[in-house]
Amino acid sequence: MSERLAVRKTYKLFIGGAFPRSESGRSYVVNSSKGEFLANASKASRKDAREAVAAARKAFPGWSAATAYNRGQILYRVAEMLEGRRSQFVAELVDADGVGVRKAGELVDAAVDRLVWYAGWSDKIGAIRGSANPVAGPYFNLSSTEPTGVVAVVAPEAGPLLGLVSVIAPVIVTGNTCVVVASERAPLPSITLAEVLATSDLPGGVVNILTGSAAEIAPWLAGHMDVNAIDLTGADAELAVTCEEAAAENLKRVLRPPSAKVDWLADPGTERMTAFLETKTVWHPIGT
């Protein structure tokens, strides 16, 4: 009996809940940390980014209007589905990062815990960011939080799973939708995460994942007039400057890249959620 042939995969993008090929037809080779062939991944073009933004915009009204409770439940569900694929993620992290099986397992567990942690914040973030304001007049004055809109996310190169989950979850838990440019070097965990998201009751278009070159795609997202904010966590210094300049044109909210190396295992705090929240203040007259 002859030796079985390897199945050589070419993974696709995740846009609007579907898995299309890149409009450009391009793909690139993904190698393991040891330089061995793992798979091909689609190399997204600016037009794929445009389609992804359109999908995210379309998903925004429904997702932002969903109750915080509902969004939290869906994030819990994502965590469950991610847990169910634990062995696949462990294998992918071992290949991508060259970490040991034990360390990879810790990283996957941390990613599950991170999702659960953010899921819990869905109905609590309003309590720490909203307020009843004392005003000099007969009014109830209430501030409450609202999602910013469509957020472009440049995911970190390091931490292909935990880093990715740690930048996506805080954006969507508050009701934003996002277009994510995944780690260029290690995109396979992001594609598997897309498969998890697609089977987790998350409405199509809430998270859109593009694989390819951040340097090529991110400036288009930064300049896009229908993107409300951009998270530059994974951008290098040069790309961050380009993107910030482009983002200034329509006054996007910008989350700058961290100044020091991020320990993704550390307590994340609420900054990533509050970076993409707007405050609405309502004055309501009291009595007569």
Binding site: M225, V227, E249
Partner: peptide
Amino acid sequence: TGRYAGPDY
């Protein structure tokens, strides 16, 4: 302009 336009405008 070379940048994608948005319906808000």
